[in-house]
Simulated assay, not measured.
Amino acid sequence: MDAENNRLFRLPFKLPSSAGARTIGIYTAGALYALGAWLFLDSAIYSKKANASLVHVTFVDWIPIICSTLGMIIVSSIEKNRLIQDALASGSFSGSSSLAWQARVVLFLGFALLAGGLSGSIVVLVIKFLVKDFTSYPTLGMGINNVVGNFCVVISCVLLWIAQNVEDEYSYSLTL
């Protein structure tokens, strides 16, 4: 059999190199974060400038996006190598060092902030907009923009963490 018949897909898909995948992932994560921040700021500016809206964006609406942003900063600051450094040396996760456990705890706190921000924006949407029966689009749109903006921040964080920790095919560890 030749190489043409051994393909999985009919169209020839080529995966980007690890450096190209890293670059694409980082730029996509930045675009998702910018979209999420823009959606939230759009609703905050609309709330401030529009007199037609009965509900306005207050500090309660800002808390979820602040939590999500702090979670993104925390998660992005952890290196994947710190999480598994002793597991590779000893062959099991039972004898991990305190540095690996500290990294795992900080990573857990970062993801907890991300989850808290996303769930907080959903709670704000339900309590502030849906329970009080604001079904007109500009007013309800402020709550929806908050949820979608936080969701974009969470997806951006996950994508950025994965993209930053992709091993480069030309990187070598020169640790002695």
Rank of each mutant, 00 (worst) to 15 (best):
V154G: 03
A100S: 15
G30L: 04
E167L: 09
S98G: 10
S76T: 08
H56P: 00
I65Y: 04
A163R: 04
G141R: 14
L113D: 10
D86T: 07
F9H: 05
V131W: 14
E79H: 15
G30M: 03
I26M: 11
F9P: 00
S97Y: 03
F59H: 02
V147C: 04
G30A: 02
I24N: 03
Y170P: 00
G36K: 01
I155T: 10
K14I: 13
L176S: 14
Y137D: 05
D86M: 09
D42K: 11
Q102N: 13
I84G: 02
F9E: 01
G20A: 14
L83Q: 05
A37E: 01
S173A: 08
V106R: 15
I73M: 08
G141I: 06
R22T: 03
I65S: 12
S98W: 11
R7I: 01
A163N: 04
K128G: 10
T69M: 05
G120P: 02
G71T: 08
N6M: 14
G71D: 09
K48F: 13
A21T: 00
T135G: 12
V106P: 04
L99R: 07
I26H: 07
A21F: 06
I122G: 06
L70S: 09
F9A: 01
F93K: 01
N51K: 12
L41C: 07
E169H: 10
I78P: 01
N145M: 02
I24H: 06
L107P: 01
D133A: 13
K132I: 14
G36V: 02
S136R: 15
L109S: 12
F93A: 06
V153K: 02
C152D: 07
K128V: 10
C157Y: 11
E167P: 08
G95Q: 02
S77F: 08
L99V: 06
V154W: 12
F151S: 14
T175L: 13
K80G: 11
G71Y: 12
A115W: 13
C152S: 14
A103V: 08
G117D: 00
A115F: 15
G143P: 11
W161A: 11
D133P: 00
F40N: 03
R10W: 10
T23M: 03
L118Y: 12
V154H: 03
N146P: 00
P16Q: 02
A34K: 02
I45Q: 09
S92I: 03
R104N: 12
N165W: 01
F129N: 08
D168I: 02
V147F: 09
V57D: 02
G110C: 09
V153N: 07
S76K: 03
S17P: 01
I84A: 07
V148M: 15
L140I: 05
V75K: 04
I78Y: 05
A3D: 08
F151A: 15
L130K: 09
Y172H: 13
Y33G: 10
A100I: 01
M142T: 11
S119Y: 11
C157R: 03
V148L: 15
P64S: 04
I78W: 06
P64T: 07
G71H: 07
E169W: 11
E167M: 05
V131T: 10
C157Q: 12
V123M: 13
A50C: 11
P138V: 12
I73P: 00
S121I: 05
V153C: 06
E79G: 12
M1I: 05
A21V: 00
G116E: 08
A87R: 04
S90W: 04
V106E: 15
G30H: 02
G141Y: 15
A163C: 04
G141H: 15
K132H: 14
V154N: 02
